[in-house]
């Protein structure tokens, strides 16, 4: 069994906020190195799914399970989930003044039990920053503070690269990126997949998907349920007709 082996499963997951049901029975299986793409209209519950997997305490699990390697995560703390290899690139990363990006990643690595020497760390950080095209000066800047939308997304990808998670959830990582940034972020995703991380990519756009290395599986999330799963043909259909036809199915 190598380090990246993964058996991740969401079963019949029902989640609510303020007694309002948002996810209504989600099933999803992800194994080592797989790419899963989740698409769906605004407000359908995509971020809710991502955050429920990560363990955000604002969301309450009503029913169902989230498991990794047959261990149930439902009542496990956020940091413990991270230590089990789950990583979430946030749709809107929060600003943390006075905490530098490099210092944060260094601490996170050691919390995850990934011990590197300072030298190795620096080399890796430099590589990663090149790959996501972040100027090296960003490593000393405060976490997300005053960063543009695109820079925040690059910083999220850099963290994924540095922390080597087994399962990476990317919540609208491509929103607000220009063509170059999209290319760099896609390349990074491909790199991580090649190194056997599994990825759940939440997106609205065909563009990023075209940059990613197949195979992958597409899931359409409408009103808190996965209404259809399949291949690239689903992406084409959304591009042509929007989500209307899927809503009818529901």
């Amino acid at each position: 069994m190598d380090d990246n082996d993964l058996k991740f499963a969401v079963n019949n997951l029902k989640v609510c906020i303020d007694n309002h049901t948002i996810l209504n029975g989600i099933d999803l299986m992800v194994n080592k190195g797989e790419l899963h793409i989740i698409m769906g209209p605004n407000g359908s519950g995509k971020s809710t799914l991502a955050n429920s997997i990560m363990g955000d305490s604002r969301y309450r699990i009503e029913d169902g399970t989230i498991r990794i390697d047959d261990v149930e995560l439902n009542n496990i703390s956020v940091d413990e989930r991270a230590r089990k290899g789950i990583f979430l690139a946030f749709q809107y990363p929060v600003e943390i003044p006075g905490v530098s990006l490099s210092k944060f990643i260094w601490s996170a690595q050691s919390s995850l039990g990934k011990n590197t020497t300072l030298k190795e760390f620096q080399v890796m950080l430099e590589n990663g920053m090149k790959m996501v095209a972040l100027d090296s000066s960003f490593s000393k800047r405060s976490l997300n503070e005053g960063l543009s939308g695109g820079e925040k997304k690059r910083s999220e990808m850099l963290q994924a690269y540095m922390l080597k998670p087994r399962l990476i959830i990317l919540d609208e990582i491509d929103s607000g990126l220009d063509v170059d940034a999209l290319r760099q972020v896609s390349d990074m995703i491909n790199h991580l997949l090649k190194n056997n991380s599994a990825v759940i990519l939440i997106t609205h756009y065909q563009r990023i998907i075209e940059n990613l290395t197949p195979p992958y599986r597409v899931h359409i999330l409408v009103n808190g349920k996965i209404v259809q799963s399949g291949g690239y043909e689903l992406v084409k259909k959304i591009e042509a007709d929007g989500y209307e036809s899927f809503k009818e199915v529901n």
């Binding site: 363990g55 703390s77 940091d79 230590r83 946030f90 922390l163």
Partner: peptide, 19 residues
Amino acid sequence: YLTSRGLREEEAKSMIVLG
């Protein structure tokens, strides 16, 4: 955000305070 990267809650809090 900080705990989602693996920091324990106290570590996260002291990091925010020190920041």
